[in-house]
């Protein structure tokens, strides 16, 4: 008996046969997988598992529960506040800059320099950034002195301190805003002129267009970028450490001190502290990835 094979069946059969023949293709990614396991996944799992183990290696929730003590909770709380504030302000400011560059009728040549500068500034984090802000907003910094001498405004008398919540937020914005600009400018570019025209010709005003069409379309991108900026700020160690030493107790600095000298008198509490960081940045990045794919589906 002979069986007729339709072209579709033949097409489906061919790749299956080929993959059966070159079934050793996975060997090609063994080096990468080994690297990822040894230097990315296993070290992280080590921490995660350690967070649920006691001194003797037995399973326990005690470490995680120990996080709920006032000094650690307050460190998380101030970390979250700084991350939310710098992400939120970064999103708003970055959105307006991106909108100005994309649809704000600025001269076209200005776009290139703005994007290049954003690339530089979003990577200019760490210790030097702290120095720059100390030199500018510190007690003897340029802006502090100018405001005092020219306008009679003493920002330190008004409660500002570069070594505090407000100072750290102000500093983080220097890399948060450019990151937002880099991500959201293409999204604003993706708003089709026809959407605006269709809305307007149907009777919508400009605010109505933004409220009902443009912002809902951009919403996944905005939410996702907010999450990304949150994670970005939450994991930042160097800037905060160089700026405040260990005077400001935020989670990354607490963890840094713990790794260096076991300040918590309990090595497994350090694991739990790190686990908390992974969970928070993991949730934030999860939101980013999910909303991002949704945004791409729409814009396509």
């Amino acid at each position: 008996m002979t069986t007729a094979i339709t072209p579709a069946e033949a097409g489906a059969a061919a790749p299956a046969r080929r993959s059966a023949r070159v079934s050793f293709a996975w060997l090609g990614i063994v080096p990468f997988m080994a690297f990822a396991l040894l230097f990315l996944i296993v070290p992280t799992l080590q921490i995660v598992i350690g967070a649920f183990r006691d001194q003797d290696g037995a399973f326990t929730f005690a470490n995680v529960l120990h996080l709920f003590q006032p000094s650690i909770l307050s460190a998380y709380w101030i970390s979250i506040r700084i991350s939310v504030a710098s992400a939120l302000l970064g999103c708003v400011a970055g959105f307006f800059i991106a909108a100005a560059v994309s649809i704000g009728n600025l001269p076209r040549w200005m776009r290139g320099p703005v994007m290049t500068f954003s690339g530089v500034a979003s990577n200019f984090a760490g210790v030097p950034l702290a120095f720059a802000f100390l030199a500018t907003f510190g007690r003897l910094g340029l802006v502090t002195v100018l405001l005092r001498d020219w306008f009679g405004v003493n920002i330190y008398a008004m409660g500002f301190n570069i070594l505090s919540f407000s100072g750290l937020t102000l500093t983080y914005l220097f890399f948060q805003i450019p990151l937002m600009v880099l991500i959201v400018t293409p999204a604003i570019d993706g708003l089709k002129r026809e959407w605006r025209e269709a809305a307007v010709i149907l009777g919508a005003s400009t605010p109505q267009y933004w409220r009902m069409v443009a912002l809902p379309i951009l919403w996944p991108t905005l939410l996702g970028t907010f999450a990304l900026l949150f994670a970005n700020a939450f994991g930042a160690v160097a800037t905060a450490f160089a700026l405040t030493g260990s005077s400001l107790s935020i989670v990354p600095i607490l963890l840094f001190a713990q790794i260096r000298g076991d300040v918590l008198q309990d090595p497994h509490l350090g694991y739990a502290l790190a686990l908390g960081m992974i969970v928070l940045t993991g949730i934030a990045n999860g939101i980013y990835i999910v909303t991002r794919s949704r945004a791409e589906r729409w814009i396509k």
Partner: peptide
């Protein structure tokens, strides 16, 4: 302005609101 003219328009790219 366009939103005061009471005109209907259909675009080549459809221009439906994706959201």
């Amino acid at each position: 302005k366009p939103n005061q003219r009471n005109i209907g328009m259909v675009f080549q790219s459809y221009a439906l609101f994706p959201n």
